[in-house]
């Protein structure tokens, strides 16, 4: 499946399925099923350079939680790749959860990725992309203009 990435070229490392990787945890790339416990990666996140999360269907959203835990809770900073049912209309959600590379068959995916971050200029909830929420922006605006 074609691979798309926002930034520099994505890692060419071959990820190991989680069970195999557990036998060779020094390998820097792993692929998780959406039922695999991301918490088990905690001792290794500093070494990992690629984690692939799987969407068996685009409507199965478990990997969004896995992604946020990896980024937010475990502090993983390497490449986080979405594979499986990855459609362009999910990109705004995936980017906010911390994914930064995508395998997708969909036509027009590259163009969609290029503008996915500009579709919504306002966000309501904190996530893994460090964007300031509407609520925070309102607070700082009130502090600048207390009368408003």
């Amino acid at each position: 499946m074609p691979l798309f990435s926002e930034t520099v070229s994505a890692t060419i490392l071959e990820p190991l399925p989680f069970v195999e990787w557990q036998q060779r945890p020094a390998w820097p790339a792993v692929s998780l099923a959406n039922t695999d416990p991301v918490e088990d990666l905690a001792p290794h996140v500093g070494r990992l350079r690629l984690i692939v999360l799987n969407f068996p269907k685009f409507s199965d959203g478990r990997a969004y939680s896995q992604a946020r835990l990896l980024r937010g809770r475990l502090g993983y900073t390497g490449e986080l790749r979405a594979t499986g049912g990855v459609l362009q209309d999910q990109l705004p959600f995936m980017l906010r959860c911390g994914f930064d590379s995508f395998e997708s068959d969909q036509k027009g995916f590259e163009e969609a990725l290029a503008k996915a971050r500009t579709l919504f200029s306002v966000v309501y909830q904190p996530a893994e992309d460090d964007r300031a929420t509407a609520s925070l922006l309102r607070l700082s605006r009130r502090n600048v203009h207390p009368a408003v």
Binding site: F58, G61, Y64, S65, F93, F120, Y124, Q125
Partner: peptide, 13 residues
């Protein structure tokens, strides 16, 4: 309402 609108993690429950 604000927190749940376009929530990136919980749109495919």
């Amino acid at each position: 309402r604000q927190w749940s609108t376009l929530h990136p993690e919980f749109s495919f429950l």
